[in-house]
């Protein structure tokens, strides 16, 4: 019985860490602020969530299990909010998404943001 738990826990941890790595790579490779923020968003919510679930499998007693659940709920709540606020702040400092700028040059039409 515990073999299955171990394997599934390990599996979740693997996926979670893979997501984190992909987020990191995304952070480096993506050209524009917003795309990069999307990559971070992914690691922040999904990657951490996966790792937490993986950890739940390994948690020795109910107390740590419940703590992990609360942490999961909190991260799911805070993760997206922080990305939202980050994006709003960027927009506030009128940092244009990259693609938008190229269209401007081509069509020379001012964006109506």
């Amino acid at each position: 019985m515990d073999i299955i738990i171990n394997i599934s826990g390990a599996l979740f941890l693997l996926i979670g860490s893979f997501l984190c790595i992909s987020g990191g790579v995304g952070l480096l490779r993506f050209p524009d602020f917003y795309t990069r923020m999307h990559a971070v968003g992914v690691t922040d919510t999904l990657g951490a969530g996966m790792i937490l679930i993986g950890l739940m499998f390994y948690s020795p007693d109910f107390l740590t299990f419940s703590k992990l659940v609360i942490i999961l709920l909190l991260t799911l709540l805070i993760g997206p909010t922080t990305s939202h606020v980050l994006a709003k702040a960027a927009m506030h400092n009128n940092l244009m998404p990259k693609l938008q700028q190229e269209d401007n040059i081509k069509e020379t039409s001012s964006s109506n943001y």
Partner: peptide, 13 residues
Amino acid sequence: LVIRIVTKMLIPF
């Protein structure tokens, strides 16, 4: 709006 609602939920915790 968004951040206010979220914080309203979070502050008690």
